[in-house]
């Protein structure tokens, strides 16, 4: 949990918003530090968390959370955290003798649903991997929509999702890819955090920039209340510092 990010987003573990769908996306940078933030944030807030880790193992998330001051193993033993390890589960599916794609795809996507019943928070890591596994964009959007409808609306919980963008900006519309998915999910979300590498290239002291989009819940009469802010960030060993553009301690 990074206190600087909390003050940017105007949240704290004591006063945690409800019914939010946060979309984290990245391009030419790694936004996984935000996933770690939300995971530790919701655990601190005392919420029940269901985490679907698709790219890393439990021990990775556990080790990082330990540095951020939250013990995942304890949370799991207490029943506060349900950790679904996609990496482990997928292997069994992939190596099965007679794979029938239709049922497995749905099986893979449906599996978290049954566990979602009594959960309030739902954090999820890197769903672009699903595209790599040959799942159609439509299926991922359906899944996200289902989760949102179920978690955010019905249970007043929150949902966080990480999308890893393609490095090359593809403008072709016939390309079924992460770009589509990103657009479709940005349409659904209430808060979007977009992490990018610096447009000017690699730098040792500034790791990238983060754009924050708020979608206001205001009535249609007053018009859409979208807010936007831009920060640069640097990831440290145990946290992240955010600063306005051009105000890195390395340049000043």
């Amino acid at each position: 949990m990074f206190s600087e990010l909390n003050s940017i987003l105007n949240t704290s573990p004591e006063n945690c918003p409800q019914g939010e769908f946060t979309l984290v996306s990245d391009r030419k940078a790694d936004a996984s530090f935000l996933i770690h933030h939300f995971l530790s944030f919701y655990l601190r807030a005392g919420c029940k968390v269901c985490f679907l880790g698709l790219v890393q193992s439990f021990s990775h998330y556990s080790a990082v959370s330990q540095r951020l001051g939250v013990s995942l193993t304890q949370a799991r033993e207490k029943g506060q955290l349900v950790f679904l390890e996609g990496l482990k589960g997928a292997l069994g599916v992939l190596l099965e003798e007679e794979p029938s794609p239709g049922t497995h795809m749905l099986g893979f996507l449906r599996s978290p649903r049954s566990d979602l019943r009594e959960l309030f928070e739902f954090v999820r890591a890197s769903s672009t991997v699903l595209l790599s596994l040959g799942v159609r964009v439509g299926a991922v959007v359906d899944f996200a929509h289902y989760c949102r409808a179920f978690v955010c609306s019905k249970l007043q919980g929150n949902m966080v999702m990480l999308i890893r963008g393609e490095d090359e900006e593809e403008e072709e519309c016939d390309e079924e890819g992460a770009e589509w998915l990103l657009r479709a999910l940005t349409h659904q979300c209430s808060l979007a955090l977009r992490v990018q590498g610096l447009p000017t290239g690699y730098c040792r002291d500034i790791h990238g920039q983060m754009e924050v989009f708020w979608r206001g819940h205001g009535s249609s009469v007053t018009g859409p209340q979208t807010q936007q802010k831009l920060f640069q960030y640097k990831v440290h060993d145990k946290g992240v510092s955010f600063f306005a553009r051009g105000t890195s301690s390395a340049v000043l």
Partner: peptide, 9 residues
């Protein structure tokens, strides 16, 4: 990509 995911696992 599926193969690499399996290998990673």
């Amino acid at each position: 990509t599926t193969f690499l995911y399996g290998l990673r696992a």
